[in-house]
């Protein structure tokens, strides 16, 4: 399988997302074609500054995807996913905006004719991952954390409030899944960086809920979610749950070594829970 991949700004420096994604894709023969010369999608900032600019920053990639000959665009970051989809939706519905965007891109030497489908890496791996054949991780209980922007506002990939796709994924690849109610609760997102005190509670709520329901590990699908939940545990003594990426668990299920998957980069170490069984 070949996919057109948009990493986003946080991918490379995140706690092993890049390493594990690349390792898993190698193992599964998925060719990751990174968009050459990608830029920042604008995240949650740019739409509050200037709609046309926000749309164009995102649409620049749509033009690039087009020259690469792909129909879909895959990203592993919820914020990128939501932002690119938002731009795609606006372009699809607003003819005037579409024309203006085309114009700006044209001035930059790019042509935009069609809008690709924006997909999340989770969807891709959901299709590509084989079912588990080993019971090695059967006793490792995982809590799936989706964050806000994977299922909202579209509610297309799954239900908006209690999605199940990640639970299905984890169960299929051989982990014990703990259901909980914090799946799509807000972690504070970018506000957590500067409103630390005010947002700390949001992350703690999530961690506490997942721990309460008996999980030993949290898994996420987004660099910012991972960062917020991971760093929130560096300052207090509450249950300390390693916050992994779903690609890291997928790598383990495929028999890859933890180091290969960048698991050493977590702030809350996963060594204990992973070596115990």
């Amino acid at each position: 399988m070949k996919i057109c991949f948009y990493p986003g700004c946080s991918f490379a420096t995140s706690a092993g997302y890049k390493e594990s994604t690349e390792a898993v894709c190698r193992k599964l023969n998925i060719e990751l074609n990174e968009i050459p010369d990608w830029n920042c999608c604008g995240a949650t900032v740019m739409f509050g500054e200037n709609k046309l600019r926000a749309t164009t920053l995102a649409a620049r990639h749509f033009a690039l995807v087009q020259t690469m000959g792909f129909e879909d665009l895959v990203t592993g970051c919820n914020a990128c996913y939501a932002t690119l989809r938002k731009a795609a939706r606006l372009l699809d519905r607003d003819r005037e905006l579409f024309q203006k965007t085309q114009e700006v891109l044209h001035n930059l030497g790019l042509e935009l004719d069609r809008i690709p489908k924006v997909r999340h890496l989770l969807e891709v791996l959901m299709e590509a991952m084989p079912d588990s054949t080993s019971d090695k991780y059967k006793t490792l209980s995982v809590g799936a954390y989706y964050g806000c922007q994977l299922t909202r506002p579209d509610q297309e990939l799954d239900k908006g409030w209690y999605p199940e796709i990640l639970e299905h994924f984890l169960a299929r690849i051989g982990f014990s899944v703990k259901e909980h109610s914090a799946r799509t609760q807000c972690c504070g997102a970018s506000h957590a960086v500067i409103y630390k005190n005010e947002c700390q509670g949001l992350s703690h709520r999530i961690i506490r809920e997942i721990a309460n329901k008996g999980a030993q590990v949290i898994t996420t699908v987004c660099p910012l979610c991972q960062f917020n939940l991971d760093q929130a545990q560096t300052q207090n003594n509450e249950p300390r749950l390693p916050v992994t990426y779903f690609t890291q668990l997928a790598g383990l299920a495929l028999g890859l070594a933890p180091a290969e998957l960048g698991l050493n980069k977590l702030l809350v170490s996963a060594d204990k829970v992973l070596t115990r069984p």
Partner: peptide
């Protein structure tokens, strides 16, 4: 209007 009912406790 109620926003949410949850079993997460404070």
């Amino acid at each position: 209007r109620v926003a949410e009912i949850t079993d997460m406790v404070e």
